[in-house]
Every structure is written in C-alpha cells, then in structure tokens.
Design a protein around this nucleic acid. Structure first.
Lengths: 220, 220, 220, 220
DNA sequence: AATGAATGAGTTTTCATTCAT
DNA sequence: AATGAATGAAAACTCATTCAT
C-alpha cells in the first residue's frame, strides 16, 4: 500500500531526518510533557517519548543524557516562566470589574490549556521526585512574584482602593476557585468538567467583587 | 548462638505468618496507599508493597489478582467514603461562626493527614488511568453528596439565614482555599507548607464570614 | 527436525526447573568462568551466562545482584584456594629428583586444566577491574603461602640440603618455566602448544636439578 | 569573554583539525592500544578511542573500516616487529656476564614499558578473538626468530662455549623469569610489583650465569 | 578528512506474574 | 496462605556504525 514498487517491502522506514539541536530539543520536551502529563514520569518510557518525536530511542540520548535530565529540563523550561502577572492596578483608572475580569482571564483562559494542565499535574504527581528543584523554584519564582504582587495589593489597600480583609492579606486565595476548576479538569475531563469550570468562573467573579468591594468586603 | 532453641539455624529468617484474609487485605491496601501516594502507580513495584506488609511478592497474589486490582480496591475503599459532611445546619441554633469553624475543622484538621494527602495526590496523578472509575465515583459519591448539601444550603438561603451569592450557589467553592492549602502541602512539604496552610485557614475563615453574612455577602 | 511431532511447534520450552540455591549458584559460576575466560568480562553478556546454565536472564538475578557480583564471587571462589602446595620436604628422605617431580606435577598436570587456564587469563585480563580484590588476594593468599614456602626452603638451605643461589632465594622463579608454558597454552591453543609445554617441562626438570644440586647450583 | 577574538563565540569548541592520514592512523592506533590494553577489546568503546585522539567517533571511520580493523592493525604493527634480538654472541670476545647483562636489559628495561605491557595483556586476553592472526604471527615472526636464535646457541654449544642442558636446548626459557616479572607488573601494579621485578632480575642473572657456565651448567 | 545527529541491535537490569513446594 | 526460584516482557541506556553536511 505505502510502497507498491516492492511487494514484500520491509517496514519502509522514513529517511533519516537531521534537525538542528534546538529544534529537536524542543520537540523532545514537548513530547515528554505530553507523555509525563498523561502517564507520569515512571509510567512514561523513553520509547514513547521517542515515538512522539519520530526519533529512535537512541536518538534522544544525543540530546539528553537521561530520562531524569529530560524531566528536569522540562520543569526548568516550563516553570521558570513567571506563573502569573502582576497587574493589579497601579493605576486607579481601571474599575474593579475590569481588573477582576483581567485576572479571571489569566486564571482561566490562559491556565486551562492542556499544556498548563499537564505541567500542573506533573508538579503534583512528581514533586516528591525533585524536592530540591521545587524548593528552588518556589524561592526564585513563586516567592518573588508573590512579594511583588503583595506590594501592589497592600498599596491599594493603604490607598483605600481595596478593603483590608483575609483576601487582600492573602492574595493567593484570589485564585483558589480557579485552582479548584483546574482540579476538576484534571480529574474529570470531558464536557462535564468544562461546564463545572465555567460555573466556577462566574461564581468566582461574583465572590471577588464582593470581597474587593470597599463596603461589603470590610472586616467587622 | 543468638537463638539457642535451634542449634544451627541458618539466616534466622522470619517465620511464615499466616493471617486472616481481611487483615492482610487491609495491611496490603495500607502499604499500597503509602507507596502509590509517594511514587505513583507506575513508580511503585509489587516488591515495595510486599516489603511494606512484611510479605513476599507472591504472597500479594493470594489476596489480589494483580497490581491493578490493588489499585482499584484502594480507590474504592478510600473514595467511596463520603468526602465531606453535610452539616450545614438545618437547625438555626448554631451561629454562622460556629458553623464555619466546624467546616474549617473538617477541611483542614481532618483532611490534611498524610493518608488523605496521599489519596488526593493519587487522584490527581492517576485519574487518567481509571477514567471509568472516576466517573462512577463522581456520579455515585460526589454528585449525591453535593446535591444533599446544596439542598441544605438553598434552604438556608430561602429561609433568609444565608445570603444569595456566587458562593451559596456554588458551595464547592467554600473549600477552595483549603484545597489550595492542600496543594501547598503536597508540593512543598516541610514547615514552610504548614505555616502557609495555617495562614490560609485564618484568611479562609474571614472570607467565609464575609461571604455568608447576610448583609455583606449580598449581591448588588 | 528436532521435533517431528508438531509441525509448527513453538520453541517447545522446557518445564520450569527449580534447584537449590547452592546448586544454581555453582552452575552459574561455572558457566560464568567458562564465558569470562573465553570472552573476557565485558565480552560476556548475561544472556550468554544464562544460556550456559539453562536459565533465563532474569533467573540469574535471583542469585546474584549484578554481573559484577558474579565476577567477584568467581574470583573469590577460585582464587582464595591456596594456589600451590608447601611440600618442599622438611624430611631428608626424599631425593631431589622425587621432590622436583612432585613439584612439576603440581605445576603442569594440576595447573594446565581448562579451568585453571581460564582463571589465569581472567586474572591477567581483568585485574585492572578489581585492583582492591587483587591486592587483598595477594596479601591474604599469595603472600602467606610464599612466606611458608620460603621458610621451608631457607631451612633446607641452612641444613645444607639445598645450595644458596638466586633460585633458592627467590623460589617463585622455580615455576617460571611452567608459567611460560601456560602462556603458550593460553595464546596458541592446539597440539602445537601442548608439544611446547611438554618440551618445557622436560627442560624445566633438568634446569631445576642443576640449580638445586648442592655442587652445581652453588654460587661462585 | 574568554576569547576576545570572537565576540559571541558559542561553546568555543575546538576547531576541526585535518591531519595527514598516516599521522592520524598512528595516533589512533596509539590511543587504541592504551584503551584495549586497559579495558580489553570488548570493554573499549569507539568513543573512548576517539576521545583519546581528539577526534569524533565518526572520524575514526575515515581511517579504519571497523573496530576489528583497528584491533588487527594494532596487532600487526606491534607484533610483527621482532620481539627479541638475536645477539647471543657470534663473536667469542664477549664474556658470558656481558652477554647475560645485555640480555637482561632487553628483557627488563625494554620490555617493561607500559606500551609493551599493554600489548602483552592484550595478547593474553584477546588471543582467542583472532586465532588465525596468532597462528600467522607465531609462524612468521616467533618461529623464525626462534630458529635464528637457536642456531646461534647451538653453534655456541657445539663450539664448547656454552654447556648443553635443558636451557640451551630450550632457550625460550631463558626469559621465563622476566615473563614472571611481567605478570607481577600486570596483575599487581604499584611499587610492590616494581620491587618484585627488581628482585627477580637479580636472581635471574645469577641463575643464567649458573646455567650457562660450562662447568656448573653441565648435565650429569 | 571530519563532524554530530541519527539508528538498530544489543547491553544490563527490573518488573509483574507464575509455579512447585 | 505463603514462599522463593523462575520467567517473558519491557525498561533505560550503550554501542558500532551510517549518513548528510
């Protein structure tokens, strides 16, 4: 079928393709993320990753010294990007509604892609494998990001633009509902999970508007 | 020498112990949860589980037909228990504060045990392995539980004891901050994560009190 | 051909045979010595050893944790036996001729077996792999043996039964020609080498008789 | 930065060097001898040889068609050189002492170099790989050399300058003690082996002087 | 002549599982 | 019920070799 010229043709293997190292590296990490995200580190074989790239097993080793190295490169590439922005309004012009909507876009639209979900599942499932990496990541990526964001929020609170309450003092929690939606997507899959996530988003919006409202969101 | 009862005892290996099937079964599931939770399904060998029980590998097969069967039995045992109570006050006697504190106890104290964390990690990591199981679990455990709880909440809203807002209409979100704390515990480990969780709990309390307050938590 | 009873019979695998650990261990070491001696350590695959024993590859690992462990067990078993006797006549009754002939028997007849040759080749080829082992072996086996033998020889020299010369002061050299014959056997193989060894033995005898003769073997 | 000549030089890897074929060939054989001598044929990878020459693996194939070819070229180059001279006194002027000392120099000083030891180990370890080669080598190199030397010795015996005995009739044995010293160096390494070799040489000298002495070395 | 990416066959080792006791 | 020797399949990784540049 594929090769009518010779009746009993062997597997008809593709010509050897040679690509630039960076390109291959990227392909490999992509395939690895897909596989690790789906089957976990231990459940993913080098064979599967190789197949995903259209390369032989041995070919992987021209670019990475070991499965572990692929794993670490993956985490490094994907997690050293700042996880969330710092856009909580240094300018007063935007309404709370607009700010919240921007935030929700970043929480849901940007973060509910297969790629991000896979990374997230990997983080949960395999963090025990690389505790040092996680610690470093937290210290160099998460903590600074949090500090920057907290500064902005505290300033807005001080300026009276936001109320002082449990949320504005622990602003991580602002994305807790989105995290819950991610969990649904991870565990459930399918339209059921999508619907769930959409409902969460709407409720999330309403909750944030209450908690960030200067009148309603105040302590008592 | 060490054992005068047997003159030339060889390696002095532990006597074969025969236990009642249910006892062994339970031991095995315990050991399996520990191992699966730490290393994932694929990363856990039958040898490790067997060692955890003090049994030989082959001994496991007297109780379970396969590794998969252990896994499914584990999920069944651990997840078919209702995950959270339905105590949101059909009686008016309790103050909101008391109800919230009870809820937080169930969210944090009860759910941040190693056992629950392991189950949770397992759920995230391996849900792709057993989609049917997850669907069934959701349909038979989660959904009914949610329905029951929603009924209670809606009733309280109708009675005017709780405001109508995004939270009371999606009451799952009430535990979103606790979920976030679990994530910290799963990924970070150590006192850092514990401190984080404690801070979350305090903020969580305050947020719930705002959102469930008839005055502050109302829509606009 | 081999199995006319079933035309397209599968490999017709032998029933699983279970042997006592010591028996298997021994079989494995035997097969390993054959293979290592012929192909060297690196040139021998676990598959070949397994085939030599009639066991599956994985079966080897029930008895040895690794290829290296097989190697070391082999050396230990084969080399910790004293390599040569200590029979150089404290009694005066035996003639020099009788002593020399006994010595030559031990040097040629006993030591030119395939087994000993294989061990010897292994020692030369792979001593670099296990320098510590070799050092230990030399210290615990060779050196003590040499010391005991030297004591006997020196005593005979002191008693005037043997001359004092380069040989009686470095009695290792007494077997140098036999070593040379071993080399021939190792390198050449075949009847050519056998003939060589026989000629060496005859000359060896004559040389020893000269050098151990009180008159002719004396210093000048 | 480290290399101001090229502003944005990447990994700064060594320039491709092109050498005359014979030079490279020689370099490769040198590196191969080192590696084969230390790790054996099977234990030596093309990568290691290539690294030893400062060449890429593929580069080796510009000079040799295969690993086996390198091995055979190595043996050919190193072993087709006559292994030992033929200087046993056609002239009567030299004393036995002088002749023996010259012989010992050739046996010890010349032959206990790392290069010769590596070749020797290789011969022992891998002779089974290339039996035809060894046979050819023996027939074309060793046997003629031996014949020439035997002629000289026999002539000296006939002329009465040397006694007729086991040694002069099997003159290979004259270097047996040196061979034994080589074995020590191969197996033991370190100063221990050096000392051993030195002691052997002194005793060797004395033994030869006895055996080649017309009076003492005679048959009875 | 030289390279580095690519490969198929092979390496050692592990694993889930079976079987005879 | 329990064991430990045994197994086929598959894992990670290596290697001699090839090919496009």
């Amino acid at each position: 079928m594929t090769d009518p010229s010779s009746p009993a043709a062997p597997p008809a293997r593709r010509k050897r393709v040679r690509l630039a190292p960076e390109v291959r590296r990227h392909q490999i990490l992509d395939a690895a993320l897909d596989a690790f995200g789906e089957f976990g580190f231990a459940g993913t074989s080098m064979h599967r990753i190789a197949r995903g790239v259209g390369l032989s097993k041995a070919g992987l080793y021209a670019h990475f010294a070991s499965k572990d190295e692929i794993f670490e490169a993956l985490l490094t590439d994907h997690m050293l990007a700042p996880p969330l922005d710092v856009a909580w309004a240094s300018d007063e012009d935007q309404s709370i509604e607009a700010l919240v909507d921007g935030f929700l876009d970043r929480c849901y639209t940007d973060r509910h892609t297969p790629r991000v979900l896979a990374t997230f599942r990997l983080l949960i499932a395999e963090s025990g494998r690389v505790p040092d990496f996680v610690r470093r990541w937290h210290a160099t990526v998460i903590a600074p990001h949090k500090a920057a964001r907290d500064a902005v929020i505290h300033q807005a609170v001080a300026a009276g633009r936001l109320p002082r309450n449990g949320l504005t003092e622990n602003f991580d929690l602002a994305m807790a509902p989105a995290l819950m939606a991610m969990m649904s997507l991870l565990v459930l899959t399918g339209p059921q999970a999508e619907a769930q996530a959409a409902a969460f988003r709407a409720a999330h919006r309403e909750i944030l508007l209450i908690l960030l409202d200067k009148e309603r969101g105040c302590r008592r």
